[in-house]
C-alpha cells in the first residue's frame, strides 16, 4: 500500500465523519442532499460484496465495514431521525438520469460479465457521479455551510489521492485498471470548480455562496 492510497482512505473516512458530526451536532441535515447519501450507500453495498468472498487484511475488512456503517447511519439520520430538517424541496435532482445510464454502462463496459464484476463496475461508475445531487443542491440554493464545504473538500481530495495511487501503481507495478482510472478522472473533474471556490473563498474565511 502506498502513501497516496492510505491518505486517500483517511480523507474519505474524514469526509464521512465530518458529515456525521455536522448532522449530529447541529441536529440538522439542512443543505445536505439525501439523494447523494443514498447513492453512496448503494455504491458501498454493491462494491463491498467481496467482504463475503475475499479476505485481504484486517485493515481492508474493518475499513469496508466502517464505510458501510457511516453511509447507512448518514442515510438514517437524514431520512429518519432528523428528517424534519431535511430540505426535500431543493434536493430535486432526478436520480434516474444517473442510475439508468450507469446501470446500462456497467453491463456494456466491464472486465467480465459476471455478477460481482458487473456490480463492482456499477459501483465505480455510480461513485463518480454520486455527488452530483449534492452539487446540484448547492447550485440551486446558491450557498453551502462551511462545514459542508469541508466535507466536499475531503471527499474530492480522496478522489484526487486515489488517482495518484493509480499513477503510482502504474509506475511501480505496471498495473492499472482502466475502469477505475477513467472514472477517477471523471469524478475528480466534477470537483475542480468546487476546489477553486473552496480555496478562494472558504479558506479565506468567507462563506461559500454563489453569485
Amino acid at each position: 500500500m502506498n502513501i497516496f492510497r492510505i491518505l486517500g482512505d483517511v480523507s474519505h473516512l474524514l469526509a464521512m465523519i465530518i458529515l456525521l458530526v455536522k448532522i449530529w451536532r447541529s441536529k440538522s441535515c439542512a443543505g445536505i442532499s439525501g439523494k447523494s447519501q443514498v447513492l453512496f450507500a448503494i455504491v458501498f453495498t454493491s462494491r463491498y460484496l467481496d467482504l463475503f468472498t475475499n479476505f485481504f487484511s484486517i485493515y481492508n475488512t474493518v475499513m469496508k465495514f466502517v464505510f458501510l456503517m457511516c453511509a447507512y447511519i448518514t442515510v438514517y439520520l437524514i431520512y429518519g431521525k432528523f428528517r424534519k430538517t431535511f430540505d426535500n424541496e431543493n434536493d430535486s435532482f432526478r436520480l434516474e438520469f444517473l442510475l439508468i445510464p450507469v446501470t446500462g454502462l456497467s453491463f456494456l463496459e466491464n472486465q467480465s460479465f459476471t455478477p460481482l464484476e458487473i456490480l463492482w463496475t456499477f459501483s465505480i461508475y455510480l461513485e463518480s457521479v454520486a455527488i452530483l445531487p449534492q452539487l446540484f443542491m448547492i447550485s440551486k440554493t446558491g450557498e453551502a455551510e462551511t462545514i459542508t464545504t469541508h466535507y466536499l473538500f475531503f471527499l474530492g481530495l480522496y478522489h484526487a489521492l486515489y488517482l495518484a495511487n493509480w499513477i503510482w501503481r502504474y509506475q511501480t507495478e505496471n498495473y492499472y485498471d482502466q475502469i477505475a482510472v477513467v472514472s477517477g478522472v471523471v469524478q475528480t473533474i466534477f470537483y475542480c470548480d468546487f476546489f477553486y471556490l473552496y480555496v478562494t473563498k472558504v479558506l479565506k474565511g468567507k462563506k461559500l455562496s454563489l453569485p
Binding site: 500500500m1 492510497r5 482512505d9 474519505h12 467481496d50 468472498t53 475475499n54 485481504f56 487484511s57 481492508n60 475499513m63 469496508k64 464505510f67 472486465q111 467480465s112 460481482l116 464484476e117 463492482w120 486515489y162 495511487n165 498495473y175 485498471d177 477505475a180
Partner: peptide
C-alpha cells in the same frame, strides 16, 4: 492480467 477482481482498493 486476466484477473481483475478482487481489488484491495476501497
Amino acid at each position: 492480467h486476466a484477473l481483475h477482481l478482487p481489488h484491495d482498493e476501497l
